[in-house]
Simulated assay, not measured.
Amino acid sequence: MTSTAAPPPTGKQKRIERCDAFVGYVHGLCRDKKAQADLRTGLGLPVERCHYLHRYLVPRLPPERLAVDVRRAHYAVAALIAGRPRSARDADAAAAAAGPAAPAAQEWWKRPNLGVSLAHAVNKQALKPASAEGDLHLMTRQSTDAIHPRLPSLTRHLLTSSVTVDWAVLLEDLAWWNYDRDRIATRWLESYFRTRTFDDLDDEAKEPN
Rank of each mutant, 00 (worst) to 15 (best):
A91S: 07
K128Y: 13
Q125W: 08
W109I: 01
Q106W: 12
A78V: 08
A105D: 00
V116N: 13
P63I: 00
V116E: 09
V58T: 05
S117I: 11
L61I: 15
H74S: 06
D166Q: 09
P62I: 03
D69H: 08
E133A: 12
V116C: 13
A88P: 03
L57E: 04
L118V: 14
A168C: 12
R141S: 15
V68T: 12
P62M: 02
V58L: 09
T164H: 06
R72H: 09
V70P: 03
A93G: 10
R111F: 01
H120Q: 11
L154E: 02
P85D: 07
L127W: 13
Q106L: 15
V169S: 00
W108F: 09
R60G: 00
L171F: 01
V165C: 07
L171H: 06
D145H: 03
A121C: 13
L158K: 04
E64Q: 11
T160M: 10
V77Y: 07
P63D: 10
L127S: 13
V77A: 04
S87Q: 06
T160P: 01
A130N: 12
G99Y: 03
P129M: 11
P152T: 05
T160S: 11
L66Q: 15
R156G: 15
S87H: 00
I147N: 15
A102H: 05
P103H: 11
L151E: 05
S161G: 07
A95W: 10
H74N: 03
P85M: 01
D92A: 14
S143L: 07
A168S: 15
L114T: 11
A67K: 06
D135S: 03
